[in-house]
Simulated scan of single mutants.
Amino acid sequence: MTQVGEYVGETGAWNRGRQWKPSISERHTVILGGVSQKISVEGPGGSAPVMIMFHGGPWAPFIYGLAYRGFYPELSKRFTLVWWDQYGCGRNARRLHDIPSDISVETFARMAIDLTGEIRRRFPHSPILLNGYSFGTYLTMQTVAARESDIAGVINLGPIMSMREATGHFRAACDRRMNERERLRMQQLQNIGRYDPYAAYVEQLAGKYTNCCHYRDALGSGNPIWRAIADSWRNDAMFRRWMLRLVTSGDYRPLDLIGAAMGTLPYGRFSRRFRTLWDSMENIDLWPIAERLPIPVIYIQGDAELYVLPDELAALAERRPNVEYVRLAHSGHIPTSRAWEWAMHAMIRFGQAVS
């Protein structure tokens, strides 16, 4: 049954019981897309449901990624978790000249499909769930489209659907708030004939003028700056823990921290070498897959999101009996601490129901 709802919870509920140790906690080297890469596996093992975690970006192992092995005992008590840093970032970082200049979002999709095949071979009797955040939801949907018979369900947190549509949402949201300098810069980038520089700048402006990324409560309400700072500090408590984990993870070396920032560093995001990758984001349109897939899918997003408008996903859930939609009150693309607790609650409930 399709469910559409808003969830607000008490903080702290999902941070307890961190002394639990998984039955398996292993690192492996696998071949994905013809390239040797590292993954890690943790959880009950055996025939327990497997949950493959796809982080955002591209090249941004944040919230999900190899650094977060052991960070979510609420999940690893119930599911065998598989962690992977996308080729070229984090633990799977390479020298720049070793990464093909024609790498694209389709390259990562093929690797995600290969990873799912590898996990199916390792856990032949376990239901497999795909759990993606942001760009990782592109990987979940491409993977399930290719390996539908292997997948029990899909969890999409902070989903993307059409990146062209997302860029339009960002521009519309901040259009009347931009100053003349910003408006001129946006128009200049729009005229250079490439997708990413313009799209990235408009997204940056939306993050500045709206709550779509970090939810700050007092934004645009006429409240004093100290109120906005206090709101941001409170709402971003989980964000600070996610960032601290990158530094303190036993799975990351100091050099891996540079790889973890690949998606934002000039030689990763803005270099000429990887223009193909960032411009290929324009090709992302998941609506056709979402409209035809029969397997269970849950979309979880903050109500201030702009990558996909909340009403669009609510309408999808109304049309499709296999789709569930959870709207997190007072949250943006990066979940607030309170929203994260309810997102975790929804993931566990959904994962147990479909597996």
Rank of each mutant, 00 (worst) to 15 (best):
R69P: 00
D251L: 13
Y133C: 06
R338T: 12
L309C: 02
N92S: 12
Y7D: 02
G168H: 05
E318C: 08
G33I: 07
W342P: 00
Y64S: 04
T248D: 05
N235Y: 00
R269E: 15
M238C: 05
L257I: 14
D217T: 09
A152L: 05
P61R: 01
S101T: 08
Y7L: 15
A346H: 00
I31W: 04
S271P: 10
G17Q: 15
I348M: 02
P58R: 11
R120G: 10
I348E: 00
G250I: 01
R269C: 02
D217V: 10
E282P: 10
E312C: 07
L309R: 15
E203H: 11
M178A: 05
S134I: 07
A315R: 13
E26T: 13
Q204F: 09
L244P: 00
L255R: 14
I151M: 09
H28Q: 14
G65L: 04
Q19G: 13
M111T: 01
D311Y: 12
G45K: 04
I119A: 08
S221D: 10
E74A: 14
I128Y: 13
C174H: 02
W83N: 15
A199C: 07
L316F: 04
R349N: 07
V247P: 00
N223P: 00
A206Y: 06
P159H: 06
Y307I: 03
E312A: 15
W278R: 04
G193K: 03
R183Q: 13
P127R: 14
L309W: 04
K208Y: 03
N211G: 04
Q301W: 07
T167Y: 06
I119Y: 08
C174V: 12
G56V: 01
G57A: 03
C174I: 04
G56P: 01
P294M: 03
R18W: 09
Y201F: 15
P254K: 10
N156E: 14
K38L: 15
H169A: 04
R183F: 01
S76D: 14
P310F: 11
A343K: 00
Y198D: 04
S331K: 03
P254A: 08
F108E: 00
E118F: 09
W340H: 03
F239M: 02
I52C: 10
G220H: 12
C89T: 14
R94A: 13
S249H: 02
S104G: 08
R194M: 04
L157I: 08
R171S: 01
M51Q: 11
A93N: 12
E305K: 04
I192L: 05
I128D: 13
F350V: 06
S23H: 11
S221I: 03
G250H: 10
R234V: 07
K77S: 13
A261F: 12
E291N: 12
R216I: 05
T276H: 15
L32F: 09
M186Y: 02
Y215E: 05
R185V: 06
L157F: 02
G302S: 06
A290N: 09
E291C: 09
G5W: 00
T11D: 08
L157K: 01
A93P: 04
G263V: 13
A206L: 07
D196E: 14
